[in-house]
C-alpha cells in the first residue's frame, strides 16, 4: 500500500470522498501558484495535483490552456513543479503531478520519478500516456515507489479497463465525459458507469475528474467515487490576479460537497 492509497482509505473511513485539487504551476506566476497550492490545502484539499505547463495541452479546455500559456510566457520551468510539490507535501497534502509525457520523457522518466520522490511527491497522472505505451515510465515509477495513475474514459472497453486498472497505483482516474478539461453544467451518468466498470475490473480506488465545479456536483460524485478531482474551477477562481481568497472560498465549497454538505 502506498501513502496515497493509505490516505484515500483513511478518508473513506471517515465516510466521505477525498477532494483532489489541480493547479498549473506558474499561473499567474510561480510564487503565487505555490502560495495557491498551500491555500488549497488549508481550505480543505486532501490531495494536490500540480501540472507543469506544456506548450501543446491537447486534453485541456480554454481555462487551463490560458493558464499554461500565461505561465510559459512568464518563463515557468519544470523544476518549479517540484518546488510546488514540496510546498504541497509540507502543507500536509499528498502531492501528485499531472504531466503531458513529453516533459517527462525530455527530463528522462527515471530522473523525473526520482526528482518527484525527492520533493516529497507520491504519484504521477499521465493524460497522454496509457499503459500500452507507458511501460518504460511504469518501470521507472516502480523503481522509485511513485504511483502511476492512468485515466479511464467512458469509451474505455472492458479489455482496456483491465489493462488500465492493472497498471494503476494509488487510484484510477475516471473521466466523467468525453471531452477536454473545463466546467460543465452537470456531471452525467457516464461518470458513475466508468467508476462501476473500473471497480468491476478490480480497482480498489477510483476518483472522478473533468467537469466538476460545484459543491452540489461534488456531493453527487462523492456518493459513488473515492475522490473528486477539480481543476478548471479552481484555476478560474485564482484567475490572472492570483485571488487566493476566491480560491479558498471555492475550495471550501467543494470540500463541503465531498462531505455531502452541499
Amino acid at each position: 500500500m502506498s501513502a496515497l492509497e493509505d490516505r484515500i482509505d483513511e478518508i473513506r473511513a471517515q465516510g466521505r470522498a477525498a477532494l483532489i485539487g489541480y493547479l498549473p504551476v506558474g499561473y499567474p506566476d510561480v510564487d503565487t501558484s505555490i502560495a495557491a497550492v498551500v491555500a488549497m490545502v488549508e481550505a480543505g484539499v486532501d490531495i494536490v495535483e500540480v501540472g507543469p505547463p506544456y506548450s501543446d495541452p491537447m486534453m485541456d479546455g480554454p481555462v487551463i490552456q490560458h493558464a499554461a500559456a500565461t505561465a510559459l510566457e512568464r518563463g515557468v520551468r519544470v523544476d518549479d513543479t517540484f518546488r510546488a510539490v514540496r510546498a504541497a507535501a509540507d502543507a500536509g497534502a499528498q502531492a501528485l503531478v499531472m504531466s503531458y509525457c513529453n516533459l517527462m520523457l525530455s527530463r528522462g522518466y527515471d530522473r523525473f520519478a526520482a526528482d518527484l520522490r525527492a520533493a516529497g511527491g507520491v504519484g504521477v497522472i499521465t493524460p497522454d500516456l496509457t499503459p500500452d505505451t507507458g511501460q518504460e515510465w511504469i518501470d521507472a515509477a516502480r523503481a522509485h515507489e511513485v504511483d502511476t495513475i492512468f485515466l479511464a474514459a467512458p469509451s474505455t472497453t472492458r479489455e482496456r479497463m483491465h489493462l488500465t486498472v492493472g497498471a494503476s497505483r494509488g487510484f484510477v482516474y475516471a473521466t466523467s465525459l468525453m471531452g477536454v478539461t473545463g466546467e460543465r453544467a452537470s456531471v452525467g451518468d457516464a461518470a458513475a458507469q466508468v467508476v462501476a466498470a473500473a471497480r468491476d475490473a478490480g480497482a480498489a480506488r477510483v476518483c472522478v475528474g473533468l467537469g466538476v465545479s460545484t459543491g452540489a456536483q461534488a456531493a453527487q460524485v462523492a456518493t459513488y467515487a473515492d475522490g473528486v478531482i477539480v481543476g478548471s474551477a479552481f484555476v478560474k477562481a485564482l484567475g490572472d490576479g492570483g485571488d487566493l481568497a476566491a480560491l479558498k472560498a471555492k475550495v471550501a465549497e467543494l470540500a463541503a460537497g465531498v462531505r455531502g454538505d452541499a
Binding site: 493524460p127 500500452d132 474514459a153 474505455t156 472497453t157 482496456r160 473521466t175
Partner: peptide, 10 residues
C-alpha cells in the same frame, strides 16, 4: 506508437 488520451484509444 500511440501516445494519446485514453478516451481516443477505442
Amino acid at each position: 506508437g500511440r501516445f494519446v488520451p485514453e478516451a481516443l484509444m477505442a
